[in-house]
Design a protein around this nucleic acid. Sequence first.
DNA 1: ACCTGAACACCGTTCAAGT
DNA 2: ACCTGAACACCGTTCAAGT
Lengths: 221, 221
Amino acid sequence: MGKLTREAVVEQALEIGDAEGLAAVTIRRLAQELGVTPMALYWHFKNKEQLTVGMADHLIEGFVIEGGYAGPWQEGLRELVAGLVRVLRRHPCAADVLDAVDHIEVPAFLQVWDTALGLAKRGGFSRDESCMISQYLLSGAVALAAGPGRHSPPGFSEQEAAERTRLKRLRLQSLPPDVYPHIVEMAVPLSEGSAPDLYDTFGVDLLMAGIEALSARSGGH
Amino acid sequence: MGKLTREAVVEQALEIGDAEGLAAVTIRRLAQELGVTPMALYWHFKNKEQLTVGMADHLIEGFVIEGGYAGPWQEGLRELVAGLVRVLRRHPCAADVLDAVDHIEVPAFLQVWDTALGLAKRGGFSRDESCMISQYLLSGAVALAAGPGRHSPPGFSEQEAAERTRLKRLRLQSLPPDVYPHIVEMAVPLSEGSAPDLYDTFGVDLLMAGIEALSARSGGH
DNA sequence: ACCTGAACACCGTTCAAGT
DNA sequence: ACCTGAACACCGTTCAAGT
């Protein structure tokens, strides 16, 4: 019925990836789920890599605030990073998708990157510094989205998630305390990962504090 | 002749991964290279995941300075992060290996983590903060090792590497300048990625500046 | 333009069997 | 203890062919 379209394929792929992990997103599995032959997908995508690029693009698409970022550059960068993390957090597999893909191939990611570059330049950083800062912030955002506080897949219940952190805690607590004293001692906070919101806020603060400190040091405004 | 040993397998795996990428590291390919049947590897490793864990462990093994880190905690953390980046940079596939693996399974990584946790606590951070800071620094180090300045695989020549950055530059320059103005303008520094040493130094500075700023803000020493 | 059928060259892994 | 042979259930992708 519903004709096979690029968008439908990508959305189905994200659904599988969110529920069962990116490894479960397979051309054949995807085709089966869409009621179609595996080779049908090759009409819409050159290969699996391009499919993954499509997934990444769909994740970020429409995120960049069009008019925005008119205030101080620090606020702009902070909002950009926090927003990117927030968008990625909506899909459990988002961070994995972005890790699996060359960012340069993803238009929506390039747009975020371009905005970050512009803000860094407004911060008075040199060209080289602006490049490094934008890369640092964006890979930092992806790492934050991949970190603890990641949404458990819709398929999995709260219980399932709680069980996983319990197993992680047990694993940490069963380590030899003489060789990993601090890890064993902190098994609880390490496995629970504190409140997810707090983690994100702290992470963004950390990223931005580094930028601002370097900005002050090198005399940027 | 040389009997098949865990270590020999891991080293061969790293050799393939460095030369042709982690995707080329395959049970069957590995067995072939070692002059053995694929199933022979299953005597030494439960499955491919454990093989990858072995690779990660071998990469970091013996890195943590035993006596060290007696000075101020900032110096200790900086040295730890810089050292980790340096060690990972010795193998082109190192960052990919660490991305593919649950760090909790890698003893050598846990040791680095434990050291980082101890240093963070000495810095006066709370338990939760210490957890987040250590995770932030270690994932930051891996991200740095994965970033530009990565060693080109031994198999590839200098020319080959130069050709790749040339292609990347062309790709960036051919983007529509009205939608990605800053990226197109900065195509050269973005593709070249500045001197690799400078990139690492800047990256570590950035990571540490964030930590120190937060430390000062919350009143840690 | 859009999809199918058949085939190719791969994977990881299990299980019984050899030495 | 350490390795092999045969088999299973998967992969991504190509290419000719259908409508």
